[in-house]
Design a protein around this nucleic acid. Structure first.
Lengths: 247, 247
DNA sequence: GGGGAGAGATGCCGC
DNA sequence: GCGGCATTTCTCCCC
């Protein structure tokens, strides 16, 4: 049900002005210039213009947008030589997009109301909070310093003293710890040694898993690994759901 | 124009079966459990189910989806106690999503055809290719080794010899080089020293910019910085476009 | 399928 | 605004 392009141009222009959420399913090509340069030849895609003036272009597969413009971009639409031209610019960011539409499968606009924010559990922050609350999860006798100290020496997840009063730095990773996580921990340990003028500082990488090369690096640097997963509070609920056969 | 939920359930179930791209604008809440746990209270959102069975939930602002399921998830829809329940599961990944829909603003399904891939220029790879073609951009007398050597010593962007025949490792960053980029370069330099049994190996970080703390680290480690931007081939075209006042 | 690293990464928080 | 870092990062490449 391809609407006449001229009618689309007028309707979409109004919707842009009204700052509605706009969905367009269409046959189009896309040129982008900004932090990089890209071109995508003609195909069927979904274009979304959000109420904060972000623009997304989605292909019928893959979870990421193939092209996009950031919020507070400026959009204009016009009909030129039988082609619907949707131009999008972001002057401060020096980004430009040019969409050429030859066929509109359907389009729709709606003012959406949503003032809710997502609540997430199981993050790296939850992990470090958990360690503060239950320091024995690291090892018996581990004593974290106050969480306010956190910023004082930089972006360190947890630090404190072990049962022999040795200063200990802990870096948390919510999933697999890789070589860059080891680098990060090593950087922090060196920083603390310098700042405190102490020779002996322990570094512990806390994560559910560690990659082989990361483990090798960790050993070479005299740092330690502690297997520990972030807390997921709803896990029990989810398991009972599964048990009930809902999934 | 809120359609009757029962009719939506039937229509969307058919569209899921036909593996069409589905767009739903609705009032809903979302529970997710998988790599983390999340909950998002009721609000107006756009739900997209793609033809590869990926599912995206978009709020009316922000460029990223607030919730999502990866491709090849399984989706089912049913009407329960006056609420449209869209359940999505990915068994291999142990991910579960539960969407409760109380109102459908509009929905639409379409089979989209798109066999084109995006072409991008200005990537880190383009940068290392540029250095291979024009090694003097690094410094006069720099001689890169064959690009095939790339894998032999690991993930090194460019390496070769300087005008004094000193082995030189180059790590490219397409934007700002940060502390982790310095760590990465340092890791490669040490790796080459070990592998070759050479004492003196130069490390150069090539990027348009470098952050202050990264610069400090680089200096401390005896590594070098070379200001260099990735090539963007269409830049000239884009500038002429701007000059013409198209944007 | 796992490991390693880039990405037009994005988003958040702090200064 | 920049800086430093996490992300349900995602994606690609290669073993």
């Amino acid at each position: 049900m391809a609407e006449k392009l001229a009618a689309c141009a007028i309707g979409i222009r109004d919707a842009l002005k009204a700052r509605k959420t706009i969905i367009i399913a269409c046959h189009c090509s896309i040129a982008y210039s900004g932090r990089a340069e890209s071109f995508l030849d003609f195909g069927d895609r979904i274009i979304i213009v959000k109420q904060d003036a972000a623009l997304l272009v989605h292909q019928p597969a893959n979870s990421n947008p193939v092209n996009y413009m950031k919020p507070e971009s400026q959009h204009s639409i016009s009909l030129l030589n039988g082609i619907l031209s949707l131009k999008s610019t972001n002057i401060p960011l020096k980004e430009y997009m040019d969409i050429a539409i030859t066929l509109v499968h359907f389009w729709k606009a709606e003012l959406l109301e949503d003032n809710k924010s997502i609540e997430i559990q199981g993050t790296e922050k939850d992990m470090s909070d958990m360690i503060f609350s239950n320091p024995c999860m690291i090892e018996p006798g581990f004593t974290p310093l106050s969480q306010e100290e956190h910023t004082k020496y930089g972006f360190i997840d947890v630090f404190g003293f072990d049962n022999k009063n040795v200063l200990t730095v802990i870096e948390c990773k919510r999933y697999i710890a890789d070589p860059s996580a080891v680098d990060q921990l090593n950087r922090y340990v060196k920083k603390i040694k310098d700042a405190k003028g102490v020779k002996s500082v322990r570094g512990i990488l806390a994560a559910p898993k560690i990659s082989p090369s990361a483990k090798r690096m960790l050993d070479d640097l005299g740092l330690e690994f502690k297997a520990l997963a972030p807390p997921k509070f709803l896990e029990r609920y989810q398991k009972s759901q599964k048990a009930l056969g809902d999934f």
